[in-house]
Design a protein around this nucleic acid. Sequence first.
DNA 1: GTGAAAGCGCTAACAT
DNA 2: ATGTTAGCGCTTTCAC
Lengths: 353, 353
Amino acid sequence: MEVTRRKSPVSTPGPQEPRRSLTLRDVSEASGVSEMTVSRVLRNRGDVSASTRARVLEAAKHLGYVPNKIAGALASQRVNLVAVIIPSLSNLVFPEVLGGISEELDDTGLQPVVGVTNYSPEREETVLYEMLSWRPSGVIIAGLEHTPAARAMLQNAGIPIVEIMDVDGEAVDAVVGISHHRAGAEMARRIAAAGYRRIGFLGTKMPDDHRARKRLEGFEAGLAEAGIALADREFYSGGSALLKGREMTQAILTRSPDLDFLYYSNDMIGAGGLLYCLDKGIDVPGRLGLAGFNGVELLDGLPRRLATMDACRREIGQRAAAIIAGRSTTGLVGGARIELTPVLQPGDTIRPA
Amino acid sequence: MEVTRRKSPVSTPGPQEPRRSLTLRDVSEASGVSEMTVSRVLRNRGDVSASTRARVLEAAKHLGYVPNKIAGALASQRVNLVAVIIPSLSNLVFPEVLGGISEELDDTGLQPVVGVTNYSPEREETVLYEMLSWRPSGVIIAGLEHTPAARAMLQNAGIPIVEIMDVDGEAVDAVVGISHHRAGAEMARRIAAAGYRRIGFLGTKMPDDHRARKRLEGFEAGLAEAGIALADREFYSGGSALLKGREMTQAILTRSPDLDFLYYSNDMIGAGGLLYCLDKGIDVPGRLGLAGFNGVELLDGLPRRLATMDACRREIGQRAAAIIAGRSTTGLVGGARIELTPVLQPGDTIRPA
DNA sequence: GTGAAAGCGCTAACAT
DNA sequence: ATGTTAGCGCTTTCAC
């Protein structure tokens, strides 16, 4: 049995005994160069003669050496990871944000690591703690609402933090997003201007989806400007969004047949509602107008284009990543606040004003 | 200027100088207990008196200490990370697999870390290298096709490897998936049995989507059993799948108006095709039958249920994660081969046999 | 251009 | 129940 940990000869490992990974020392011995020089070659640092470099690379490749970033990170106090914390991956929106982040990070040597919270503040706290314990170079996190503990961790992390998606609130550090309140209000004004008066809201019942909540609040505020109050509302949670959209639409129209507009908290349930209306032969947008939110690509394939607002998902990811990348280069600190402006796309489901 | 690295006094950090993170030593000093005991408390290891434990936890919490997993991993030679390497996040299928993985890993102390390859073998190789350099406890990777270098890395990693989604080929270690060849063949037999004879295939043009390719091969083999050859085929890539489905359907029906069945390589383009047919008033499934692949939840909201086959996405994730979790506990080695059986769901778009 | 020494923050192993 | 010692595999720093 081995007792000492180091210098154990690389005897053939026993049957069930996990093989030891190769180390710099192995490459060093195989190439007859010091560990230090091997390290330099592998990181393209400092001056190394072409011949040495070739010899080292050859040895490393031949052995199948994969550097140990754990040791590297510990020694250099540098980790090329960016923590990305989002509520969900099935939401369609977040993979797109992620796409923007990856794209922007691609040439920086930084790598995103994704954590998913399922819209639970407690899970967010856990995930954040877990990720911070790997000492990432930055954090990109969805939303401005966090538990006090999570907020404290973000503040004390000593790394750039970018809160994304939403700008309606107090940021810890930098923030990139849109105002969901304003987005809701803008849609409300457009609807009111088009002459719709009996307006219903349909949303997923997500106590922790603050952005959907803010859109609704903004929407009601916008309607109020025109002296209109929300006539009815319908909430669901879970399941296929498209199907839920159908069911909710049927439910609300059965209960309040005089509604002339339906505002959905996202495009997927909106699309379900649209399909339902077309099925039932309801005149859209004449008898009934419809609008969603997000501007998802999926809508392009529907029989009619649902009115929506682009949430600038990809750009949000890019800008957030750019902030992290920029700071990790310059070392500068200071919280930018970037508010993007979503564009209202009336599509075919709002009648002209 | 500091020269020694250790024992540097915790003087107030300068304005732009990144703060040093708290260490075990800080907690040790604050609580008046040795670093080792603090470490034990924080990991719930060994016997620590209730009073000491309380004191340590209090100190750690008060300071806002977040353990440094990099150092911990290096010292313990243990990393609670599982590398998950998938082609895409926008494919709808992979987030579901991920869901299964997370769920299964949740109580094991293991954490998934996701890497995305965009269906590029070279990118897969890079991502794999990057992830292996963090010395994860296991790898879950989509598909059986890898570059020789990637395959070598997997073989030499000395950790459990689970290749997922597909079982048609040679696995490095364990494998969990379905036979896409068989899935294609089964659908072909069903279609032939229903009396369809002029059959077209529509797929995304993905040279590296081996599973779609295998389904097509199986499909053709299945048709051949009934003496049928594929009458036409149509390929596209990129863009909104739903919209592409529409366009491709229009294209293939224009070119080959006598087709009586369309087999799509995935449900999204199939759904687009279905919407197109309904728009055009084509009699489905009488005049024209349709089928997709995957069994995505989205289909539930469509006007008609598209025929499909469930790809067992969630279960694949669960089983794969269970293999990794099991091995990291038992230390046993040995490649399981788990073939799941997808179920054909005829929906409303294949006429009865 | 190359090497030697020290130590990153933590934990395994062995005292006590 | 708690402390001490010696690294984990790499990079920083300084010397040659």
